[in-house]
Design a protein around this nucleic acid. Structure first.
Lengths: 250, 250
DNA sequence: TAAATTAAGATTGTTGACAATATTATAGGA
DNA sequence: TCCTATAATATTGTCAACAATCTTAATTTA
């Protein structure tokens, strides 16, 4: 398995350093299907499972103490959410969104999230706002401590938590999926050093919500998402090179 | 099975008249997984499978000549799209969206579809426009011939075909799912006689596209979706009565 | 008669073994 | 030495039988 790195094709195989065992230090207790999905979600959000990582049934089965059939179902669900890609007779791999898909995903987010935050402004309770503020504090902390993993995860979760306040389960689900896929995109197209989602902008979003200004909040969200996209390198040429640097450069 | 109708609880059990065999006159040739899903999609779109219909594995297995395992996978995919609902140990049923879910779905459509049609206006080719016009002619015809099933299906498909022109596979997929669920909503909350999606408004949408006026198209789409929602009876009280009348009243 | 209990039947959930395919390792030839 | 062909291994796909659960029918009891 280690020898596979030597081939320098660069387009096809990467993300072989990461393995499924990274899902947790020791996972042996049998987990429910939803729990397994949630753990894989978390691993993707923290970029512990980079795009292209193979998820073999046997390994997952061991890791989670679940039968192969159950793993199979999990993989099918993840595939239907476009988090993993199923290759016939070849197994399941963490999705590698193309630059084109990335653009579609960001357009989708710019379409949906401003509407959600506008609803959230109207409906948010002081308690919910406090929760968001607490979340942002953690985010800030992780960012300053150079805790990359937590920072990435929390940054994404902020959008998911916000979406939960929009009182629309349908759009909420879409945002959750899109945030997840954005995490993959950042792994593929994000510059290594640069923070992908500045918590300062999250702070401004909260300001607008606190002020009860739906329009400002929606506009800020739009800008925020555009900024994230702009910091990526979606210019067609490379397709799977950047993240290799990322892996070795950290 | 026929005796089950006698119970008059009205909230729980309905849609027992429709059965899985309605999926096609005679389906025996073995179909691929995607084909099975597509056929069930079509049946839902034409309201041949009303909300609440049970999809038993054995019957589906026979109907499509597929093994039970394959049927199981199909049902899982449909469940992940929220077209069917899986009850543990009790089987799969065509989803019955609540009034609240219905409102969320329409809000989602009003969020997404105007953006898509705006993109479509910019990109549409004469050939694609001709296809849409042809589609609308069929729709018109079915409507005038009082061909309820085709009218319903074509009306939904119009939105799906339009979404395909938006050059955003992500949003396109969401629209497809939402249109499907809208079909279920109309089955549950739609008034029996009234047409649910006047083809005249589709015609106006095409006019705006033809004129290259993105704003007008987007606004028209917004109005159109609002009209569809307004023609439903989403006022909380009833939950599964209207469609019984629908079934018997036609 | 109606409600509750029990038994029979049908449906779903799960397991393990087997078949088909892909991947890797080995051997042979230019 | 490098490339090709072949064999061995590992992984995924499928099936059929079994277990668990729910639904329905029959039976009993108040």
């Amino acid at each position: 398995m280690t020898a596979a790195r030597k081939s320098g094709t660069a387009d096809r195989d990467d993300a072989k350093s990461a393995s499924v065992e990274d899902l947790r230090p020791n996972g042996d207790a049998k987990a429910s299907e939803a729990e397994i999905i949630e753990r894989i979600y978390a691993a993707v959000m923290e970029q512990r499972l980079p795009p292209g990582t193979k998820l073999s049934e046997a390994t997952l089965s061991e890791t989670f103490g679940a039968s192969r059939m159950r793993i199979r179902r999990v993989l099918l669900v993840l595939a239907s959410r476009e988090i993993v890609q199923l290759h016939s007779n070849r197994g399941a791999y963490i999705s590698k969104p193309s630059a084109s898909e990335a653009r579609s995903i960001f357009e989708a987010r710019r379409t949906i999230e401003p509407v959600i935050i506008r609803n959230a402004v109207e409906r948010v309770t002081p308690a919910e706002l406090a929760t968001l503020e607490k979340h942002m504090a953690e985010e800030h902390k992780a960012h300053h401590q150079r805790n990359r993993r937590d920072a990435i995860r929390l940054s994404g979760e902020f959008h998911v938590k916000l979406a939960a306040l929009g009182d629309n389960p349908v759009l909420e689900r879409y945002v959750k999926e899109l945030v997840m896929r954005t995490s993959l995109i950042i792994g593929l197209f994000g510059a290594p050093g640069i923070p992908n989602c500045s918590d300062h902008e999250h702070s401004e979003l909260l300001d607008a919500i606190r002020a009860g200004d739906g329009n400002a909040a929606a506009e800020m969200m739009m800008r925020h998402l555009s900024h994230i996209e702009e910091e990526l390198e979606l210019t067609g040429s490379h397709s799977g090179k950047v993240n290799i640097k990322d892996i070795f450069g950290s």
